[in-house]
C-alpha cells in the first residue's frame, strides 16, 4: 500500500488528480472499520489530517477535517448536541464532519443538521476548481454522494443566516455510543417558520416539507396542530425494517421526535 500525506489542499488535489482511485482518509473511523473487516483493501491512501485549510471552523464554513470533539463546542446548538452523540469520546476525537459527509450513511448524524440549515457542500478538484452543491444535490442515496473521483470535500458552507433556535435529538437503543435509529433536527426562525430534517428514515437525510408547511401556516401551533405535525412527519418519512429497528417504529418515532423538538423550539 502507498500513502500520501499532503500538508496543503493543493497537494491533496494534485495527488487525487494523479490517482482518482485512491482512498481519502480523514479520522479513519469509517474507513478503518471497513479495512479491519476486510471490506476495503486500499492500495493508495491520501491522508488528510495534516491539511490545515480543511481543519478550521470559520464564520460560515466548517472545514471537512474538523472533528466532532471540536464541534461539540459549536455555537450552533443542534450541531453541538449532535456532535456529542457521535460514537464515543474516542470516535469524536478522530472522526470528522467531512468523513461523515463522505460516507453519506443514512444514519450519519451530521447530515440532518446540514439539511435543516440548508448547507452547501464545497468540493474541489485540480481540474475544475471549487464547486458547491446544495446538501440535497450532494447526498444521492444510501452511502452515495455526488463527489467526483478527483474531488475532495473541503467544507460545509452555511447560509448567511442560521437561526439560533435549533434542537437535535437522536434515538438509539443505548444511552451513548449508538447508531441512530431515528434522528431529527428542528430549526425555528424568528418569523416562526421552521425547518424539519430527519435521519435514518430514508436513503438520505430528508426534510419534512409538508410538516414544515403546516407550521409555517400555524406558527403558534395548538396541541391539535402539534399532533397533526407529528402525523405529517410520520407520513413523510420512508424508513425500512432492518436489524436495528422496524419501519413502523421509525415512522412513529420520527413524528414524536420532531414534535418534541418543535416544542423545545417554541419554549426557547
Amino acid at each position: 500500500m502507498e500513502i500520501t500525506r499532503p500538508t496543503s489542499l493543493s497537494e491533496a488535489l494534485d495527488a487525487r488528480a494523479q490517482d482518482p482511485g485512491a482512498d481519502l482518509l480523514a479520522g479513519g473511523t469509517d474507513l478503518m472499520v471497513e479495512v479491519n473487516f476486510g471490506l476495503a483493501k486500499p492500495e493508495h491512501v491520501i491522508a488528510l489530517r495534516r491539511i490545515d485549510e480543511i481543519g478550521e471552523v470559520e464564520d460560515r464554513r466548517i472545514g471537512a477535517g474538523v472533528t466532532w470533539a471540536r464541534l461539540e463546542e459549536s455555537d450552533h446548538r443542534a450541531l453541538a448536541q449532535l456532535s456529542r452523540t457521535v460514537g464515543s469520546p474516542q470516535i469524536r476525537a478522530a472522526g470528522t464532519i467531512g468523513g461523515n459527509i463522505g460516507t453519506a450513511s443514512p444514519a450519519g448524524d451530521g447530515l440532518p443538521w446540514l439539511a435543516a440549515v440548508d448547507a452547501e457542500i464545497e468540493v474541489a478538484s485540480q481540474a475544475r476548481g471549487t464547486r458547491r452543491l446544495r446538501w440535497d444535490e450532494f447526498f444521492t442515496g444510501v452511502k452515495r454522494n455526488a463527489l467526483e473521483p478527483d474531488e475532495v470535500i473541503v467544507a460545509a458552507v452555511l447560509p448567511e443566516r442560521v437561526p439560533s433556535n435549533q434542537h437535535f435529538a437522536k434515538i438509539g437503543q443505548r444511552s451513548a455510543m449508538v447508531i441512530s435509529t431515528v434522528s431529527a433536527v428542528v430549526v425555528r426562525d424568528d418569523d416562526g417558520s421552521v425547518r424539519v430534517a430527519l435521519g435514518s428514515v430514508a436513503p438520505t437525510p430528508i426534510r419534512a416539507l409538508a410538516a414544515e408547511q403546516l407550521i409555517n401556516e400555524n406558527p403558534q401551533p395548538t396541541d391539535e396542530v402539534l399532533a397533526e405535525f407529528a402525523r405529517t412527519v410520520s407520513a413523510e418519512v420512508t424508513p425500512i425494517t432492518d436489524h436495528r429497528s422496524t419501519e413502523s417504529y421509525r415512522r412513529h418515532a420520527a413524528g414524536v421526535l420532531a414534535r418534541r423538538l418543535l416544542e423545545r423550539c417554541l419554549a426557547s
Binding site: T85, H167, A169, I171, S175, L257, R260
Partner: peptide, 13 residues
C-alpha cells in the same frame, strides 16, 4: 440527559 431515557440523544424530557 444522562439521567433520562435516551441519554445523550436528548430524546426525553
Amino acid at each position: 440527559a444522562r439521567h433520562l431515557p435516551g441519554g445523550t440523544g436528548l430524546t426525553t424530557d
